[in-house]
């Protein structure tokens, strides 16, 4: 995309985009809990939330009121400052990661809207030219939320939870990075915009060229967002709630929002990198396509949660280091050979 063809990205546009991302994603993250409960319920032939509003649609508001008004308990021997800061880290890193992710296509606010009319809103709040690495790095920094939360509470379950956080995130970062390396090699850029535009010409999604990388990225993404089959960080049957054992009220809610924002981030990355991004498809406009793709990725996470049992911690490590990482390396090598020849 030629830089001259685009309208100038102003500070106003970026701020509008940032507000949009914050508002939309936190609303979706809240709504995601409702969707998750509903989908899981349907898959188990239950009804799910039903009584607050039509079809239980207002359940999120009820939950929000409950979380906001709940007593904020800080346990006796906990390190109070770190205990209080940890949930904010999870939520903040999840949203900072979204800053470098293209969520909607570029658009210009129509002239007839007062004050804001004519401002060009870019697809990415900040188009760092190492977007993918930035997102991965920010999600890596997100591990401090669970880690510090577990260590700050004087609770053995918390310590176990944060130990699991450390090993799980550290291990699966390797797989995420290696799996996404092959598409990066093919596109030759680290920017999401280039990924989106890179395969505009021949119209084939990157998943056609890199199916192995896609599967690896999904598996590692599930591990990094702490989704079933890899939800060992807060697995009730073994470690009560892991790092959130002592949390209550809004602090617990912030962990939750962070987790759902991360799920959306993974969904966006998978859709932009592997599934063709926000390009128009046949007669369907791009913005609808990207929403559909992200929604499908989100649904897939819930679907998997309803279907598959989770793994043991040792199986998790075994899977990462003995299966996924070698496969990812082989995939990178083969991609390199094919590109050179």
């Amino acid at each position: 995309m030629e830089a001259t063809m685009l309208p100038e990205v102003t500070a106003g546009g970026v701020i509008i985009k940032a507000v949009l991302i914050l508002a939309v994603i936190s609303a979706i993250a809240g709504f995601g809990t409702y969707i998750e409960r509903k989908v899981l319920a349907f898959m188990q032939r239950r009804l799910g939330p039903q009584h607050v509003g039509p079809y239980g649609l207002l359940q999120i508001i009820a939950d929000g009121i409950k979380l906001f008004t709940k007593e904020d308990i800080i346990p006796q021997h906990a390190n109070k400052l770190v205990f209080a800061v940890a949930p904010a880290i999870t939520a903040a890193t999840a949203f900072i990661a979204l800053a470098a992710v293209p969520v909607f296509p570029d658009f210009t606010i129509p002239e007839w809207i007062p004050v804001l009319g004519g401002i060009f809103v870019p697809s990415i709040a900040s188009d760092v030219n190492v977007g993918i690495l930035f997102v991965l790095g920010m999600m890596a920094a997100g591990l401090y939320g669970p880690l510090l939360a577990g260590m700050a509470q004087a609770n053995k379950w918390g310590i176990l939870g944060s130990a699991r956080t450390a090993i799980q995130f550290l291990s699966y970062e390797v797989v995420t990075g290696l799996s996404i390396l092959a598409p990066i090699m093919m596109v030759g850029s680290l920017s999401f915009v280039d990924f989106n535009d890179g395969y505009n010409d021949n119209g084939l999604w990157l998943i056609v060229y890199q199916p192995v990388a896609f599967v690896l990225f999904l598996i590692a993404g599930y591990a990094e967002t702490n989704r079933t089959p890899f939800d060992l960080l807060e697995h009730e049957a073994e470690i009560i709630s892991g790092y959130v054992t002592e949390y209550s009220g809004m602090r617990w809610g912030m962990f939750f929002i962070g987790e759902y924002a991360n799920m959306i981030t993974i969904g966006v990355i998978a859709s932009v990198v592997f599934l063709g991004g926000y390009n128009d498809f046949w007669i369907i406009p791009g913005w609808l396509m990207i929403i559909g793709k992200i929604a499908f990725m989100f649904f897939l996470m819930l679907w998997v949660r309803a279907s598959w049992p989770h793994v043991r911690p040792d199986q998790l490590m075994w899977l990462c280091w003995k299966v996924l990482m070698p496969v990812a390396v082989i995939n990178v090598v083969i991609t390199g050979i094919v590109m050179m020849v």
């Binding site: 349907f42 898959m43 188990q44 032939r45 679907w303 279907s307 598959w308």
Partner: peptide
């Protein structure tokens, strides 16, 4: 996956 989807 199919089993859960069918149940849904």
């Amino acid at each position: 996956l199919w089993v859960t989807f069918r149940e849904m």
